[in-house]
């Protein structure tokens, strides 16, 4: 049974195809180079988020198709550039994380727009022994999203304003869909949606029973998603509009599921361990006493 094949007690066909690792980093593995006759062609997903604090997040996601499966490329160095008049101005670099993603934050104040009021960025992966180089461009018009919570009696609303600042003058952006989200543990949860009017404003009502943190605070986020002109935009504000929910369980009950075991279980465990180990100690003590005994007076 000791062959290159697998053995199973089951009678069905159990031959295993070679296992594939969906989180491997081919660039770092020497075996990837041996197994792949040609260089791997990575692709970069490049997006931007214009934030409320006037900064911009440049997001790059790297992946490649290896052995028919897409894998995220982690620990890859990606460089970010601003493109002005066909000239690449280096901004910095980042290393992709375990999901193959890298986020570079750039302050918006120092950036110059082109004649159309647009910003152009480029992300570049230089390539390595196993992989080809890759680059991607993103272009968007400069804009700003403002968020303001308004409480009228028991009615909770969020006023959102979308302004174009690409040309240096502030111009309202109308007929654009804006979503309102609240920050949750994993991903923001959408609680409302509206469309900007002629003044670039939208008023969106939000529920008044949302669970907040221990002090009832909610993080409200206004988002413009996948806009052709402005890309992605967001702005956030904190407001104590939520229902206070403490995430600290002060005292867990004694139960199987909690970190506090049932008392009877704890006592049984302690009694058993003390009984057995207590015996061991007595026995070892008795063994040590053997040495001290008189060597004469045998019974034989």
């Amino acid at each position: 049974m000791l062959g290159s094949y697998n053995f199973s007690f089951a009678q069905e066909d159990t031959t295993q195809p070679p296992a594939t690792d969906t989180t491997a980093a081919p660039a770092e593995e020497p075996t990837a180079e041996e197994e792949e006759p040609s260089l791997i062609s990575p692709s970069i997903d490049f997006t931007s988020v214009q934030k409320g604090d006037n900064s911009i997040d440049l997001k790059a996601g790297m992946r490649a198709k290896v052995k028919g499966q897409f894998i995220n490329l982690y620990k890859m160095k990606v460089s970010f550039f601003q493109v002005v008049n066909e000239e690449d101005i280096p901004l910095g670099f980042k290393i992709t994380d375990g999901n193959g993603k890298a986020v570079f934050n750039v302050k918006g104040d120092s950036l110059k727009t082109d004649a159309e009021g647009k910003l152009n960025f480029k992300v570049v992966f230089a390539g390595n022994k196993a992989m080809e180089s890759a680059e991607e461009l993103v272009s968007f018009k400069r804009g700003r999203l403002e968020i303001k919570p308004v409480k009228e009696d028991s009615l909770l609303t969020v006023q959102v304003k979308l302004i174009d600042i690409g040309t240096g003058e502030e111009t309202a952006v109308k007929e654009t869909t804006v979503g309102v989200f609240v920050k949750r543990m994993f991903l923001p949860m959408k609680v409302g949606e509206g469309e900007t009017d002629e003044n670039g404003e939208a008023t969106i009502e939000i529920p008044n029973n949302l669970p907040g943190d221990a002090n009832g605070k909610l993080t409200l986020i206004a988002k413009v998603l996948e806009n052709e002109t402005y890309g992605e935009m967001e702005a956030s504000v904190e407001e104590a509009w939520g229902v206070a929910v403490s995430d600290i369980i002060k005292k867990q009950p004694r139960a199987l599921w909690s970190s506090n075991p049932p008392l009877w279980m704890l006592l049984t465990f302690i009694i058993l361990m003390v009984a057995v180990w207590g015996h061991y100690i007595v026995i070892v003590y008795q063994l040590f006493r053997l040495r001290k005994e008189e060597p004469h007076a045998t019974n034989h």
Binding site: Q286, R291, E293, E294, H296, A297, N299
Partner: peptide
């Protein structure tokens, strides 16, 4: 062997 010589007290303890 812990000094075991077969003494009565040793036998008893063991």
């Amino acid at each position: 062997a812990l000094g075991y010589r077969g003494a009565a007290s040793q036998k008893r303890h063991l």
